[in-house]
Design a protein around this nucleic acid. Structure first.
Lengths: 288, 288
DNA sequence: TTCCTTATGAAACATCTGTTTCAACGGTTG
DNA sequence: CAACCGTTGAAACAGATGTTTCATAAGGAA
């Protein structure tokens, strides 16, 4: 089974010395350079001594620097066939079942979906939705079934700099209670994909009745909740998979987080860093 | 104005001598060879003398053989990163803050990451990891902090056709207990991104000690847990956002689900449909 | 035929490449 | 404090690289 240089670097990164890491980082970032240029040329442009690169190859388990370069060559050769062509071949030539083929199909579908997402969202639409979320006193996140995990992810991202984002996860009992505590100065963000959980639909219904602004993200124009939402986004999710793909949805969610972060003010990022340091000092995370 | 080697060959082909044509044909057919290997190596494998290749470069209007190789390098580099240019432009061309601009940047970054993911996974690597997961009696899913939601999502997808996938979510106490119940016939799938939760790292450590096969997905080569895992994937996550992007990770996870679904047998999809019907008949979902 | 031109590879050449040695440095341990 | 260890780059080294020279061969013209 073939192993790429990047993987070798990953396997050995922990045991590398300072300079070897610098060299390894350069190799990981510039694989084509390594495959095509000479050791000394790479050494010069990266600012590390030639000897270090020679040592790096051995530290990564290669016999030689040349052996490492051979791996790079193989990767470059694989890359030479343009990705889009392979994706096209795979889509038209039927179903290869090797891991790389399936991966290529998924990747192609994701690229397709993300491109469409980017193209099909009208100007100003995102701002309007983000405005609602930004001004809201509290934001309730609703997602069931497959959407539950993503809503959780969104809630995690937001909790770093916005205190009042509440995740109403898969567990349904809390939802009604949480909704009853919200008013027009709050907001609801719901995520629902096929198959649509009734719970999410009724949450939107309830929100509308109580005058709570809603942002709704779904995958079909025929979703029953679409007319109920104040701000609705339809994200393409078609894919080769049996289930629908969430990649484009993640992009949209992360974009929303980005926009909210920008509105949160200049020092929001500082506050996040502080919170991260706090997390680290509690021994929860591992520092590189 | 760049001219490729192929074009130069076309322009000069008529004026070339016999051997020079043989050499030119070889160069046109194997541009990667020329870009990556030495003149003498190319000469040997093509059966033409080294001197001829040196002369060919000049006959095509290059100063040098090295100048010709530089053109080859440029071509390889260009083809290698189809999306990255656009992504790079968007990322570096300064910070438009309108919703569409931010979305475009995120989309570009996601496209970039997905392309790299597709490219940098070695053949056979996915299969090996999926094999482990498929054969496992039980699979424990580990993810903390930002990865918790995605792990949850994966667990949800899998529960439709694989009974024994257990999610060890953000809550840490259950993790140790769950791990202690696993053995070499089981598997652990862990997801960890910067900042890396210590809990995930130690889960992998524990799994390794107990001989449990592990699949590990992370975002940095420097992750401390990388050497501990039996099957490790490094997914690119760079993005315009303060936080790292999970879009490419979602693609990888969905691909894994796809491959597992394929191995689950032909009737797995039928069983899922039946389960969905069941869910619907319980009044949980809304049918379009 | 002889003379001249062109094409070609072997070999010689200076240069460059990757490796290894070695001395210097910084940190740790006794 | 000294002794020791791992890390690092400069320099030395053998071998490889790209170019050029040169001898040979093949053809064309006189």
């Amino acid at each position: 089974m073939a192993i790429t240089i990047e993987e070798r670097i990953g396997q050995h990164y922990g045991g590398l010395s300072d300079k070897l890491r610098v060299a390894a980082d350069y190799v990981a970032a510039n694989p084509v350079e390594v495959a095509t240029r000479s050791l000394r040329a790479v050494a010069t442009t990266s600012g590390v001594s030639p000897a270090t690169f020679s040592r790096l190859a051995r530290a990564l388990g290669y016999d030689d620097y040349e052996a490492m370069r051979d791996d790079g060559r193989a990767a470059v050769g694989r890359r030479m066939v343009p990705f889009s062509q392979r994706a096209h071949d795979l889509r038209t030539s039927g179903a290869g079942q090797s891991g790389r083929e399936v991966l290529a199909r998924h990747a192609a579908a994701a690229l397709h979906n993300v491109s469409f997402l980017e193209r099909d969202i009208a100007p100003g639409k995102l701002e309007a939705a983000v405005d609602v979320l930004h001004k809201a006193r509290r934001v309730l996140l609703v997602g069931s079934l497959g959407s539950s995990g993503l809503v959780d992810y969104l809630g995690y991202q937001m909790h770093w700099f916005a205190a009042d984002w509440i995740v109403a996860g898969r567990n349904g009992t809390a939802l009604a209670a949480a909704l009853s505590r919200l008013g027009p100065e709050d907001a609801v963000l719901a995520l629902s994909k096929t198959p649509h959980a009734k719970r999410s639909v009724s949450a939107l219904e309830a929100a509308q009745k109580r005058g709570i602004p809603t942002v709704f993200i779904t995958d079909t124009y025929s979703s029953p909740a679409l007319p109920l939402a104040s701000h609705a986004f339809v994200v393409p999710t078609e894919g080769p998979q049996f289930f629908s793909s969430y990649a484009a949805t993640v992009v949209l969610l992360e974009t929303i987080v980005s926009l909210l972060l920008a509105r949160a003010g200049e020092d929001a990022e500082d506050r996040i860093r502080a919170a991260e340091d706090q997390l680290h000092s509690l021994g929860e995370t591992w520092a590189p």
